[in-house]
Amino acid sequence: MDEQSLIAAAQQGDLTAFNSLVEQYQQGVFNTAYRVLLDADAAADATQDAFLSAYRAIGKFRGGSFRAWLLRIVTNACYDQLRAKKRRPTASLDALLLSPDDPGPFVTERTQDNPLDQAMRVELRDVIHAGLRTLPPDQRLAVVLSDIQGFKYQEIAAIMDVSTGTVKSRLSRGRAKLRDYLLDQKELLPDKYRLKRKV
């Protein structure tokens, strides 16, 4: 079944068809939520909420990019999570338990990389996440959608429900801040990821 048929079946209430779409997009949706929220549990909650909302609202889907539509829903779920977190700030248990030498529960599942590559990727991820954390949520989301998820400006504008000019501005400021942060923290990056300046 192609995507359009699955969407049409899901619009008729076919849960199996909708779950086929979930399986297809859950990785991207979770990744976006994870990079925006920078908390695995909150990202999982936002992803679950987003798919549930999508199932309930799929009757209102009027064509276009289904992925962008899903990401718009997960974006709203992420904002809900951020608002809830602002109301009830909590310390992440993962952050308390993981030491810098411990790559965390997700990384152990990656077996295709050799241990050195794996360790360097973990270091890179940690530094990037720390950098993303310095950005305001709007700029962080624009950066994630553009540079990690690969969306075009118009798609980002539709997902974030803002104008293309706003996307351009948020992305420009977000990237500049992140670049400054990464340059400041370059000692924390593995050597192969450091910026080699032309002399």
Binding site: E23, Q26, V29, A44, Q48, R179
Partner: peptide, 30 residues
Amino acid sequence: LEGLRWTIGLLAQTSAEPLPRSFVLRKTDV
């Protein structure tokens, strides 16, 4: 410009996080 290009390159190299679980909906969820 070089710094921006480098930043975008680093962001592109961040690999996907493995899913903590499946988000397939059950009948009881819906």
